[in-house]
């Protein structure tokens, strides 16, 4: 991994954020709502509206508005929420922290389940366990989060009363209760990814088990366990890193739904609220922060891959 490669990746993150900011700005600018009307209400006097438009720079040409917004962004200023009157930056980042807790737990749970599942399915290819895993993963990728979430809620919280239905408790205030509240949302978002990633691990593992070097390792007389874990699993998991990173995009989408269902004040819920309220700065900040999270996750995955697989030549 050369400095040049690193510089390229950083440049790419910058480019990604630039494109995302342009896109988000373009989409939100096309919003039919007049920000001034949203702020002051339908009954505001034309004079007051005009004054506010001037103050917000709404009369400037679009590119100038973009430039003002972007340069403020670069200074870390995401704008003021039209809904709460508070700066959106801190609001969105603290929401992001809550979302990342859900996402992190979901990723961990997913890996803990998907990797062994895919491994066993590959080793017992065509066996009953493989078929069962296959069926489950079909179901997993075919159920949208709002269905699984609601059904889980119905079953585990409403029917069996094992878990609290909705709500969020900060981790530091009461760790146990906090985690109890997180079980359902985490379970919901990880299900789709378990289905996807376990299939991926399975097919990669099957490929690797058929590779020449695994055969060579076997025929060198190495113990089966060494062949499996040192030679096969490691190489089968490498491409999975990339897939998991790409799945982060899916995860972030899933989190929007899950936060809505389970009433978690994360970034997804903030976004939905902002969209409903047409709170422009909040929408822009939320979308940008989500995309940034995704880009950073992929950047980290690239670094992990590079460290684990020296074959990649970074030029």
């Amino acid at each position: 991994m050369s400095a040049r490669w690193f510089a390229r990746r950083c440049l790419f993150i910058g480019y990604t954020l630039l494109v995302v900011s342009l896109l988000v700005f373009a989409i939100t600018q096309a919003l039919p709502a007049d920000a001034a009307v949203t702020l002051l209400g339908e009954n505001a006097t034309p004079a007051a509206l005009a004054a506010l438009r001037l103050k917000l720079g709404l009369n400037d040409p679009v590119w100038l508005q973009y430039w003002h917004w972007l340069s403020a962004l670069l200074r870390g200023d995401f704008g003021i929420s039209m809904r709460t009157g508070q700066p959106v930056g801190p609001m969105m980042f603290s929401a992001l922290a809550r979302s990342l807790l859900v996402a992190g737990l979901a990723l961990a749970l997913m890996l803990a389940v998907a990797v062994p599942l895919g491994l066993v399915a590959a080793l017992r290819r065509g066996g009953p366990l493989d078929l069962a895993a296959g069926l489950i993963s079909y179901l997993g990728v075919s159920l949208p989060e709002f269905v699984t979430g609601t059904v889980l809620l119905l079953l585990l919280a409403d029917h069996l009363h094992w878990l609290p239905a909705t709500g969020y408790v900060p981790l530091l205030r009461n760790p146990l209760d906090s985690l109890r509240h997180l079980v359902l949302p985490v379970l919901t978002v990880s299900l789709v990814m378990v289905a996807h990633v376990s299939r991926m691990v399975r097919s990669e593992m099957i490929d690797v088990l058929h590779s020449d070097y695994v055969r060579a390792a076997r025929l060198k007389g190495l113990p089966a366990r060494t062949v499996l874990f040192r030679h096969a699993l490691r190489n089968a998991l490498l491409p999975v890193i990339t897939v998991v990173a790409l799945d982060v995009g899916y995860l972030l989408g899933g989190i929007i739904v899950v936060e809505e269902i389970f009433a978690i004040p994360g970034i997804g819920r903030e976004l939905i609220v902002a969209i409903e309220m047409r709170d422009l700065p909040a929408i822009q900040a939320g979308a940008l922060i989500m995309a940034g999270t995704y880009a950073v996750a992929n950047f980290l995955a690239d670094i992990a891959y590079a460290l684990l697989d020296r074959r990649i030549r970074y030029d």
């Binding site: 070097y213 060579a216 030679h231 190489n235």
Partner: peptide, 16 residues
């Protein structure tokens, strides 16, 4: 019984 394979670039594990 030892074995020498046809293609050394695939017979060696690329990540070790």
């Amino acid at each position: 019984i030892g074995m020498v394979f046809q293609d050394p670039s695939t017979a060696l594990n690329p990540t070790l």
